[in-house]
């Protein structure tokens, strides 16, 4: 049997059970609308400003870094699968390993560069920055 039929069936179940719970809850629960309840929680204060705040750029940097590296893992996957069969098939180790070493090497260079450029440096305190510039002078 095609395994994806079963997976599809599980997907149905995985959506169906929560939906069923929602339905049950909808039947059970009361509804007492009231202004104060639906205000968003801000430690009990009246919410100020919009939620669409500008947040730390680092979140974005990390996301970018991830997008790149995650896709690289996609490219490593096929290699891991054929690695052992290839070796057993008589290929020399360097022949199979070297390309991936190069690949990972390039990745690591990129990672180190991003790291040193501060892509994954969450906080840059003014004091640390000051010390850095002084050291450079």
């Amino acid at each position: 049997m095609n395994p994806w039929i079963a997976i599809g069936a599980l997907a149905l179940v995985a959506v169906g059970i929560p939906v069923a719970m929602m339905v049950v809850s909808a039947l059970l629960r009361p509804s007492v609308p009231e202004q104060g309840k639906s205000a968003v929680y801000e430690s009990g204060e009246i919410p100020t400003g919009t939620t669409r705040i500008r947040f730390n750029i680092q979140y974005y940097m990390v996301a970018l870094l991830f997008v790149v590296f995650d896709i690289e893992t996609v490219l490593i996957f096929p290699w891991t699968v054929i690695y052992r069969p290839a070796l057993e098939g008589g290929a020399s180790m360097m022949e199979v390993l070297a390309p991936m070493l190069v690949f990972i090497g390039v990745l690591v260079v990129g990672l180190v560069w991003a790291w040193r450029q501060g892509a994954v440096q969450w906080v840059s305190s003014p004091r640390a920055l000051e010390e850095k510039t002084e050291a450079n002078q």
Binding site: V109, G110, V112, W113, R116, Q117, G118, T133, N136
Partner: peptide, 15 residues
């Protein structure tokens, strides 16, 4: 290109 990046990684603040 890699060499440039490496140099830049080692001395990222060099102006």
């Amino acid at each position: 290109a890699l060499a440039v990046l490496l140099y830049d990684s080692v001395w990222p603040d060099s102006s």
